[in-house]
């Protein structure tokens, strides 16, 4: 449920780091809590993102949740496919359900995030 190669934050986002680029999505736990995702509002390529701040919104039929970035940087790619098929976030949260790619300004921010095991313990507590 929580791939080991990813890092997680308390807002239930995951990131996968390759060099200085981080792919960001939401965890399996988060998508399950939301229910069927019907809309994802994402930033544009080139937008500056700040760690801990809202970079978009994700909606189910009867809820809206803010997407909070785990790291700071510039958006270099956006998963536009979610516009037509937002349910991909439910079906494949760690794969095709990714949201944005960020060129990190401060890669050290990743060190503050949780490992898969730490996140699993965190989620167990929340549920």
């Amino acid at each position: 449920m929580y791939p080991k190669e990813l890092k997680y934050d308390k807002e239930h986002e995951w990131i996968k780091v390759t060099d200085d680029v981080a792919v960001v999505g939401i965890s399996d736990f988060a998508q399950d809590q939301l229910g069927e995702v019907v809309y994802v509002d994402l930033p544009a390529v080139g937008d500056e993102i700040v760690a801990g701040e809202n970079f978009g919104e994700i909606e189910s039929v009867k809820s809206v949740s803010e997407l909070i970035s785990p790291v700071s940087g510039e958006v270099v790619e956006v998963n536009d496919a979610l516009g037509d098929t937002p349910e991909t976030v439910n079906e494949d949260p760690y794969g095709d359900g990714w949201m944005i790619k960020i060129k990190m300004g401060d890669p050290a921010q990743v060190d503050d995030l949780m490992t898969a095991d730490e996140y699993e313990a965190f989620v167990a507590e929340e549920a």
Partner: peptide
């Protein structure tokens, strides 16, 4: 399209 509305989005 109820997420536009007050009972979900409140002050937003």
């Amino acid at each position: 399209m109820q997420t536009r509305e007050q009972h979900i989005r409140r002050e937003k």
